[in-house]
Design a protein around this nucleic acid. Structure first.
Lengths: 168, 168
DNA sequence: ATAAAATTTCAGAAAGTTTTGAAAGTTTAA
DNA sequence: TTAAACTTTCAAAACTTTCTGAAATTTTAT
C-alpha cells in the first residue's frame, strides 16, 4: 500500500469513528490529516487533500482551534495561515475530555440536580423509583466526572502510571 | 415541580446527551423512561408517554434489548410483552462500553494495523510522520482498550475500588 | 384450524445535519 | 490608500438519519 492510499484509509476511518462519537466527519478528517502531516498545511492544501469547500474547511479548522486540538502558524513573508495539529495523543485525549465535559456533563448535572427536587410523597412508588434512579445516576456521573477531572489535571506520567495500575 | 414535569425534563436531557454520544434520541429516551419506571411498561405505554409511533417504539426497544440494557417481561394470562430496564448504572455503563468497544474500537484496530504497513523508505519525512502518528495512536488506543476490557470483566466491587483509587 | 391480539417490517416522509460557494469582510505589502 | 490575497459568513442545496403508519407476519387461546 502506498502512502497516499494509507493516508486516505486512515483519514476515512478516523472520520467514521468521529461520526459515531458525535464529532462531525469533516472535523475528524481534518484532524486526522493534520495529525499525519509532518508540516503545517494551508487552507488550500486541506481543501485539496480532502476535496472539500473553502467554507467547510474554514469552519472545521476553526472548531478544531476552539477545541485546542489545532494551532495556527504564520510564516514571515507569507500572508497565508498554516495549521498544525497537537500530535501528543495524551494531550489530544485530555483536551477532548475537557471540552466534552464542559459541553455535555455540566448541563446534565444541572438537570439532575433540578429534577431531583420533585414534589410529593417519597412513599409513592413512582416518585421513589424516579428519585432513586436519578440519585444513582448522579452518584455514578459524579464519580466518572471526578476521575476525568483528575486525569485532565494530571501530568502525563501520573496518568500513565495510574492507567498502568488499572491495567495490571 | 411535579413528577410528570421532572420525568419529562430528565427524559429530554437524557435524549440530548445520547444524541451527542452517537446514540439516537429516541433510544436514549426509551431507556430513560424505563429507568425511572418502577414497573415494566408495554409498547403502548412507551408510545403514549413519548409520543412516538409503534414502529419507532418497537425499533428502539429492540435495539436496547440487543445492547442488553432492556429486558422483555411476560405476565401469565397477558399476551402483551412488557419491558424493564437494567437499573444498575454500573452494569449499564459496562454494557454500553462492551457494545461500543466491539462495534467501534475493533474496526479501528484493524485499520491501524493495516495502514501501518505502508510501503517506502522510513527516512522519508512524510512516511515517518505517518507511521509515527499511527503507532502512537495504536499504543494509546490499546491501553484505553485494555483498561476498558478490565473494567468490563471486573466485578462491581473491584471496579468501585479501582475508581476510588483513581479519584483519591 | 381459527381469529384476535400482538409484534415486526419497510417504503416513503419528515427532520436534522453538513456542505457548498458566492459575497462580504479583513489584512497587509507597497 | 489601494488592491490583491486571504479568511469568514451564511442561505440554500445536498445528504443523512430518524420516524411514521399501514401492511405483513407471528403468536396464542380456544
Amino acid at each position: 500500500m502506498k502512502l497516499i492510499e494509507s493516508k486516505e484509509k486512515f483519514i476515512n476511518a478516523w472520520g467514521t469513528l468521529g461520526t459515531s462519537w458525535g464529532i462531525n466527519r469533516t472535523m475528524a478528517q481534518v484532524h486526522a490529516l493534520l495529525l499525519v502531516s509532518p508540516d503545517a498545511l494551508s487552507a488550500e492544501e486541506i481543501m485539496a487533500e480532502l476535496n472539500i469547500s473553502r467554507g467547510n474547511a474554514n469552519m472545521n479548522v476553526r472548531t478544531l482551534i476552539d477545541w485546542g486540538l489545532v494551532f495556527k502558524e504564520t510564516r514571515s513573508g507569507e500572508r497565508k495561515e498554516f495549521f498544525v495539529a497537537e500530535k501528543d495523543i495524551w494531550k489530544v485525549f485530555k483536551q477532548i475530555a475537557k471540552e466534552r465535559r464542559k459541553r455535555e456533563l455540566e448541563p446534565i448535572f444541572k438537570v439532575l440536580d433540578d429534577v431531583k427536587k420533585v414534589e410529593g410523597d417519597k412513599r409513592d412508588r413512582n416518585i421513589k423509583a424516579f428519585v432513586d434512579t436519578i440519585e444513582e445516576i448522579e452518584r455514578f456521573t459524579r464519580k466518572a466526572d471526578k476521575t476525568l477531572e483528575t486525569m485532565i489535571k494530571a501530568d502525563e506520567n501520573w496518568l500513565m502510571s495510574s492507567f498502568m495500575k488499572l491495567m495490571r
